[in-house]
């Protein structure tokens, strides 16, 4: 990484740090401004479970002390920031003594796996189709069928998820309705388990892919039209290079670059969409955890999930910014 000027690196690092700080602060401030007292919520839950609670005032005091909300706000804030840096979000209030971080660690691999898989598939398919829409030699079917399919790309994945779930799980019963793996398999590194995971993950991934590939295809189409008119493509054609070679090495190679920047800016929205897909498929990821936490008013968990997802987004944007000049030699890191 010797080619990255330190000023650029510092600049990006400051942006990354600021993003994380602002997000963490927003997440902390918002519930503090709310009139709802988490200690009373916890007490209410106890009362609901036990019928009646004796010595409610003393318990409230104790709960407030345990949650740390009897301290001055500034102390709470810095404690929170310190905790967040080491992924310590406190204890879940719904499943009380469980640390939030361990709940998130259980859900994270599922979300990451589904996300990486569907992102790669959409990015590849979308860009390829977008390029083929412009290419002179692609079959007419591609030029007619894809723009028609494009209509679906504006729909958020949650709607396509519902539709696919109804057709393939509820009606045809080809795929399971809920969960990330079957109840009859033991989680572990076995072929049975892997098979079950793939079987359960297919529909959630598909519902993301069918509605997001078009975004890339559309962007790629615009870029390809621009690249198509460039002199170097004309020259390559004049030299008699194979059309396929020109498509991949001259046209797509140049058109794909701005797409990668778009990728970085889009990650946040994609993750948010995926959280919702996980919720409707009851997939064992962050989406389900988030939904359960909302139902239980489990604030530490809601905060932790929001923070982790924002962190993931910010770090990916940072990485794309760093790697970009290596992919596109025309851009240098100088621009601060």
């Amino acid at each position: 990484m010797g080619r990255i000027p330190s000023s650029y690196l510092i600049n990006r690092l400051i942006t990354l740090g600021l993003t994380i700080w602002i997000a963490a602060t927003l997440i902390w401030i918002i519930p503090r401004l709310s009139p709802i007292d988490p200690a009373e919520v916890a007490l209410g839950r106890m009362a609901a479970g036990a019928g009646a609670v004796e010595g409610a005032d003393a318990i409230l005091e104790e709960l407030r002390r345990q949650m740390g909300i009897d301290q001055p706000l500034l102390v709470q804030y810095f404690k929170y920031l310190g905790g967040v840096l080491v992924f310590d979000f406190g204890l879940s209030t719904a499943t009380f003594p469980t640390p939030v971080s361990s709940l998130i660690m259980q859900a994270l691999p599922w979300t990451l796996g589904l996300m990486i898989l569907s992102l790669i598939i959409t990015f590849v398919i979308g860009n390829l189709l977008g390029a083929l829409m412009v290419w002179d030699r692609s079959p007419n079917l591609v030029k007619v069928a894809i723009p028609a399919a494009m209509v679906f790309t504006s729909i958020p994945p949650i709607l396509s998820g519902l539709l696919l779930m109804w057709i393939f799980s509820a009606q045809l019963r080809w795929f399971p309705l809920t969960g990330a793996y079957g109840l009859n398999v033991e989680p572990g590194w076995s072929w049975d388990f892997a098979q079950s995971v793939m079987y359960h993950g297919f529909l959630p991934a598909l519902s993301i892919v069918v509605v997001t590939f078009g975004f890339w295809a559309l962007g790629m189409r615009g870029l390809m039209i621009t690249v198509q008119g460039e002199d170097y493509v004309k020259l390559a054609e004049a030299k008699g290079l194979r059309p396929r070679y020109i498509l991949y090495r001259y046209m797509i190679r140049n058109a794909i670059l701005p797409q990668i920047t778009a990728f970085a800016l889009k990650i946040g929205l994609l993750v948010a969409g995926q959280v919702l897909v996980e919720r409707i498929f009851a997939y064992n990821g962050m989406g389900k955890l988030l939904y359960d936490a909302i139902l239980d008013q489990d604030f530490p968990v809601i905060q932790g999930i929001s923070y982790v997802i924002i962190l993931m987004t910010a770090v990916s944007v940072f990485l794309v910014d760093l790697v970009y000049p290596f992919i596109d030699p025309r851009i240098r890191h100088e621009r601060a």
């Binding site: 400051i14 942006t15 993003t19 918002i30 909302i294 929001s306 924002i310 910010a314």
Partner: peptide
């Protein structure tokens, strides 16, 4: 800087915190 920072934060997640509160 502020717009660079805010553009990477997914609105849904902050709003979930807000509305849950």
């Amino acid at each position: 800087v502020l717009s660079d920072v805010m553009i990477t934060i997914p609105p849904l997640l902050i709003l979930v915190v807000f509305q849950a509160a």
